[in-house]
């Protein structure tokens, strides 16, 4: 297939899936975009928002638009890891002999909806770690691969809500993006009322299959990125660290730990998907700016003062981007900035 056709296929697939989701979901364009980008970048996406904002509906709609298996786990405090990954059970064959047989858990699906993931204990939350990072699960000494593509979409309520367990940092880092689902505007709310209070007529078409998704993921990695844009990514990540010399004051004051290198990878991969989705063949600095907040906001851990002051990690990321852009051209002559 010609390269141009591949790119066109990507653009068309992306837009098709986007359109299908938008049939159901009103508004939340940035959330939908983050989810789609996460899907094509090969990562997992965490959706955070108050109950009733359409998080679960968004994921279910996405799953309906893809020819992929879909699993849903409702996380509760008494949920055990075996309930997620599966367990060995004793079965009796036709000869009456008993043997252990692995009973797959819901994690063995292409698209996994981990609903209200922060209502389970950290132990149970950690059951997702290996699957999200390695694409396989180890149970009873046997490692079993997960189907590809494997895409986890987790939803969580704001941490301040009662009966929630904050996700471990290691698990948070496994999510390529964290999208914040905000309350809809009045117009969007009106549209939601209109769509949801009448007999459902919207039909979501399956526009993408698993192999196509995998092929498009490979195309994403071919998108070139120029060195000065790559340098900007590194600078942005570094300026989220309070120990970095040129970090902005807000970072030095309120941040305990900055982003890991996974944050930089997430930014670049997301920017590549974004560029391709717009029919571009290269990553621009604007793509990086657009991906900075969803890729870094859950990787920045505030210190006590930052938590007490209610500092928003999006603000810290925005300041980091500004500082990095200034730093990138600081040494340049006035006409070459």
């Amino acid at each position: 297939m010609a390269q141009d056709a591949r790119v066109q296929e990507f653009v068309k697939s992306f837009q098709s899936l986007h359109s299908e989701v938008q049939k159901v979901i009103v508004g939340h364009d940035d959330v939908i975009l983050s989810v789609l980008i996460g899907l094509f970048a090969g990562g997992h996406v965490l959706l955070e928002g108050a109950p009733g904002l359409g998080k679960t509906l968004l994921v279910r709609t996405l799953a309906e638009g893809l020819e992929l298996s879909f699993s849903r786990i409702q996380f509760t405090p008494d949920l055990m890891p075996a309930d997620i990954v599966g367990t060995n059970i004793i079965v009796e064959d036709t000869n009456g002999r008993k043997r252990f047989e692995f009973q797959q858990g819901p994690i063995f699906g292409h698209i996994l909806l981990a609903d209200e993931i922060n209502r389970a204990t950290p132990k149970t939350q950690s059951a997702l770690l290996e699957g999200m990072q390695e694409g396989s699960v180890t149970v009873g000494g046997a490692t079993r691969p997960l189907p590809a593509p494997f895409f986890v979409l987790a939803t969580q309520n704001p941490i301040e809500m009662e009966g929630t367990y904050p996700l471990p940092e290691a698990q948070l880092d496994r999510f390529i993006f964290k999208a914040r689902v905000r309350y809809p505007a009045i117009e969007e709310l009106n549209a939601i009322i209109e769509r949801t209070t009448r007999p459902r007529e919207v039909e979501v078409r399956r526009v993408l299959s698993g192999p196509v998704v995998l092929r498009l993921r490979e195309l994403v990695r071919e998108v070139p990125i120029v060195s000065h844009v790559r340098d900007l990514v590194s600078l942005i990540v570094m300026t989220t660290h309070p120990g970095f010399e040129h970090a902005p004051e807000i970072t030095k004051r309120f941040v305990r730990y900055g982003s890991s290198p996974r944050g930089a990878q997430a930014m670049v991969l997301g920017a590549k998907v974004l560029a391709l989705s717009q029919g571009r063949y290269n990553v621009s600095a604007e793509d990086i700016r657009a991906m900075a907040a969803p890729a870094l906001r859950h990787r920045i851990i505030l210190n006590f003062e930052g938590e007490a002051e209610g500092v928003d990690s999006d603000t810290i990321v925005a300041r980091a981007v500004e500082s990095s852009e200034r730093l990138a051209v600081r040494e340049k002559e006035v006409f070459l900035r």
Binding site: P224, V226, H228, V229, R280, N282, S284
Partner: peptide, 17 residues
């Protein structure tokens, strides 16, 4: 949108995609 700079840089690279 960084097209020219990327094209110049990547056109000369051996690992061009």
């Amino acid at each position: 949108e960084d097209r020219v700079a990327t094209a110049f840089e990547w056109a000369a690279r051996p690992d061009r995609t």
